[in-house]
Amino acid sequence: MTRKPILASTAIALLLSAGAASADTWRYAFEEAMDEVQGKFAQKFKEEVEANSDHEIQLFPFGTLGESADIMEQAQSGILQFVDQSPGFTGALIPEAQVFFVPYLLPQDTATLASFFKNSKAINEMFPPLYAEQGLELLTMFPEGEVMMTTTEPVEGPADLDEVKFRVMTNPLLVESYKAFGATPTPLPWGEVYGALQTGIIQGQENPAFFIESTKMYEVTDYITRAGHNNFTTAVMANQEFYEGLSEEEQTMIDDAISVAFDYIIDYQDGLTEESLEKIKEAKPSMTITDLSEEERQPFMDTAESVEQEFLEIGGDQAQEILDQMKADLEAAASES
């Protein structure tokens, strides 16, 4: 039920022993399974690269090389050429990336989201230098779906989260966000979440519907709450030294493959949320799925300003500039869609 990186040490040893001998093989790790959104993106990227070059892409889904922190270290050290990781895990490394966890900043409208992620000046111009400081080439960011709370007790407002131990990623602003929601945020590696819910160590967690369905989180929770507070964001990066060492032609080939995979994954997600919720209800008819009304969401929305102020305090030197640019980018995306 849980995903444990049981093969991680063996896989890492094989990568290290391969070294530069497999110069035509590029390695790409991500935080999800092959049949989940990051896996689908990776497979499309692999398909495009292999169709337009002599290179082979070797894919490593969640668990094969360890937890999120492990694959980030491997990408920075050059063991991996590519990595897909949510800003939720890079927030401590790149404080400005925590902006994606300001509640109610990102819209729910999928067309607006797609336009924002594709055209955002904040994402495409301001974030790349910040990632470069960590030895990473930011290739793209993309949305993975509306984030929903899954809990063992019903949630209709912040009062219902009082004293609820709620699993969050190891992201300081996400911790602050759930404190503002009234919960007791509990950072845990993903591999421990199912068991922690099963044993009552925690009583809630958040993820997009497809991930709740595929990881069977509904088996150890009874309620799904749609508060509309966020959309899961992820970032695809390359080891910067590797990327800069490529020819201009190969860099263009990679950028083109990323662009094709971006368009593909946006289309792939059309209707995915509702389809996943239907599968959950089919698997567990007793599951209660609640879409909060605007009135019910308002107490959650009222916390956004305090979390935004916290971001400005802990979000790095460019926090204000990035937040302002993101808001301008989101306004432009809304007008376009």
Rank of each mutant, 00 (worst) to 15 (best):
L197W: 05
F82Q: 02
S68E: 11
T288A: 14
T10D: 08
K179G: 08
D24V: 06
E32R: 11
E296T: 10
D222C: 03
A334P: 11
P129A: 05
K216W: 02
T234D: 03
Q203A: 14
K284N: 09
V164I: 14
T252S: 10
E310G: 08
K121Q: 15
V49P: 00
A328L: 11
I57L: 05
E146K: 14
V175N: 11
E153H: 07
E219F: 04
S9T: 11
T25R: 07
I224G: 00
F300P: 06
I289C: 00
A13Y: 07
V83T: 04
L7T: 10
G145W: 04
S214P: 00
G88Y: 01
G157D: 15
F101P: 01
A97V: 07
E31Y: 03
P143F: 10
Y194K: 08
A8D: 00
F62N: 10
A97I: 04
L93T: 15
T288K: 13
A13W: 07
S247P: 04
M287N: 03
I79D: 05
E250P: 01
S337P: 04
P154R: 03
E313L: 12
V37Y: 05
F262H: 06
D270Y: 09
Q134N: 15
A18H: 08
S293C: 12
P61L: 07
A209P: 04
E295V: 14
K216I: 05
F117K: 11
G316P: 09
S276M: 02
M148S: 05
K46R: 08
Q81M: 00
G191W: 04
A51F: 06
N52Q: 08
E274A: 02
M148Y: 09
S259A: 14
V102P: 04
S214D: 09
A23K: 12
P189W: 06
L173K: 07
N207L: 14
